[in-house]
Design a binder for these strands. Structure first.
Lengths: 231, 231
DNA sequence: CCTATTAATTGATATTTATCATTGACAGAC
DNA sequence: GTCTGTCAATGATAAATATCAATTAATAGG
């Protein structure tokens, strides 16, 4: 990993976290002086579950997966980490440990911000603190929603949900490169990889999506939403 | 529900949320002046999912269940709400709606605190804000952990986990009154009620717990933990 | 271009879990 | 006390999902 800073300053950064708008110019400067950049190749681990939360992470380009290393060596993929979003597990405010691992899917340019500095800014800036609460709350609500869905929906519903997540959140397009393997798609939807293949095929046979091993195209969005919602 | 305040003030309250220690005397006074108490009978709904988060909730006595009303009328029990803990779903900072319903299991004395006031205190008091972040983060981490466990553990592991939750968190005792029905225990562990019955019987047959319909006694804690951890 | 390796696919089968139907136990209403 | 409804328990069965084994595609190195 290289350590050259490619972004000249937070102030001019186009991928800047929107919550930084609540900081004063001086405070943003403090952030800028306490960050460092690094680039990672696809497959490399950016943050490791259990390691100390010495930094908050942002991605300036590329994509990563965040996942919990669970029982019997089985992973559980939580989300796709994208540019412009704060990547900071709840452990930062619980046991000062990363709750999940973050691994690069594509080549990734990452920006690390000293967490003690970050935390200090939260303490002194009420609006910033509130915006962090909003960010964390949104993630927490997402997790609760996800937990209920994983519990109550059957496989087609869970997979449909994941396909829509990629279309709506990750790529903002109904046709996209499937950056996860079938195995990983299973780790995200709690399915065996063989089941992912089969249900994907069912969705294709019924004309809802087109899929080859590396590409997904949503053909009948309404129907896919219906499958996702009905469970 | 009655509206007589039984607790004279926050300052003297023995069930006070520990995070209030970060407030000044004046700030605690503001809280005190913007709260109201109410009592609920077993079965009554204290907060309804989807309704506006006009208040943060605390329970001064009794127990309640918090649950999400999910698909096809199926509930998902998130936790047992206990005295001394903040009950505020993430929706408060997302869409100003309660993320889950809270219903009294026993007779409950509740204390409602105006959420706008609460939020204002978060804005002006950095230490209080940080303590709220810690509280919310702990819950969020718990949810993530729960989601992974529900996904990766089989029924015996999930049920064992719930039994230990009651022993360790709710009652702090290895013998306790099972306040949830088999149906509800299933809503907590994502199992059909019949399966709860069967696995409870298996645990009893193997000498791990004693159970009758209303009581649980953990006999072999080590083995129960092992079942819970191994999944 | 060929080969080694990994990922995707497929079919057969086993396991896990849910549903259905029925019976028994218990608690509150009258 | 008896009725009545709800919850618990049990057995039989069905549905959902995982695993295993084998084959085929895709891909990265040499």
């Amino acid at each position: 990993m290289s350590v050259v800073n490619l972004i000249s300053s937070c102030e001019s950064c186009t991928r800047r976290w929107k919550n930084f708008q609540h900081l004063t110019k001086e405070q943003l400067n403090i952030v800028n002086e306490n960050r460092y950049e690094a680039t990672f190749k696809a497959g490399e681990i950016i943050l490791k579950q259990g390691s100390p939360t010495s930094n908050a992470l942002f991605i300036s380009s590329g994509m990563a997966k965040t996942y919990i290393e669970g029982l019997h060596g089985k992973n559980f993929i939580i989300s796709i980490a994208l540019p412009g979003r704060l990547i900071l597990g709840p452990g930062a405010y619980v046991d000062s440990r990363h709750t999940y691992t973050v691994a690069a899917i594509t080549s990734v340019q990452a920006c690390f911000i000293n967490f003690e500095i970050f935390k200090q800014l939260v303490r002194v800036n009420g609006a910033f603190a509130e915006s962090l609460l909003e960010d964390i709350s949104a993630k927490s609500q997402g997790t609760l929603n996800r937990m209920v869905n994983l519990s109550q929906k059957k496989m087609p519903g869970r997979l449909a949900e994941a396909l829509l997540y990629f279309a709506d959140v990750v790529f903002k397009n109904d046709e996209y490169e499937m950056i996860l393997s079938r195995q990983e798609l299973g780790e995200m939807t709690n399915m065996a990889k063989e089941c992912v293949v089969r249900i994907l095929k069912e969705l294709e046979d019924s004309g809802v999506v087109y899929s080859d091993s590396s590409r997904i195209k949503i053909i009948d969005r309404e129907k896919l939403i219906q499958i996702s919602v009905k469970g």
